[in-house]
């Protein structure tokens, strides 16, 4: 059995993603949570690159790490939230939440573990479906109407945020 670089990277990135996702929900300090979530997004971007979905990898970093998380960080820093102001739930609710989540994971994995594993995605170099040329052509021919509608969604979200955030 040979171990390829892809496999090693897959395991490293998976461990990094899971560890930083766990740190997101266990950190007491909200700023730490934000930074761990950014780390999660970077490891998910790494997975996209392994799957040779380069466009989504870069867009994931630009949109999530570069824009959305900056917004979160801004809000947390301006509200001056830190360890002391962080609301705590009692131990039993935490435990119940963890057990519920664990059960969900168990059920989902049990139901999906026997999916037909014949079709592997071993050969990530096979298709260039994640490249910008192919995705761009699809996006601006077949999916051009949803694309335009999403721009209207953005505009309305922007106006909505300004209206909500304004002081009366």
């Amino acid at each position: 059995m040979t171990i390829t670089i892809t496999q090693i990277l897959f395991w490293i990135l998976s461990v990094a993603a899971l560890f930083s996702a766990l740190m997101v929900i266990t950190s007491k300090n909200p700023v730490h949570s934000v930074l761990w979530l950014i780390a999660t997004f970077f490891s998910i971007s790494g997975h996209y690159i392994l799957l040779s979905a380069q466009f989504l990898a870069v867009v994931n970093i630009i949109v999530y790490a570069g824009a959305i998380m900056v917004l979160f960080l801004f809000v947390i820093m301006l509200m001056n939230l830190n360890r002391e102001t962080e609301p705590q739930k009692n131990r039993w609710i935490k435990m119940a939440g963890a057990i519920a989540g664990g059960c969900l994971l168990l059920v989902l994995v049990a139901s999906l573990k026997n999916v037909e594993s014949a079709s592997t995605i071993e050969d990530v170099k096979g298709g260039d479906v994640g490249f910008i040329k192919r995705l761009g052509k699809e996006l601006f021919s077949t999916y051009v109407v949803p694309f335009e509608i999403s721009s209207i969604l953005f505009l309305s979200a922007m106006v909505g945020a300004v209206v909500i955030g304004k002081k009366e």
Partner: peptide, 12 residues
Amino acid sequence: LLVFSIVSVGVY
């Protein structure tokens, strides 16, 4: 686009 993504992370 990669340059752009790195620049956008530079804020941190």
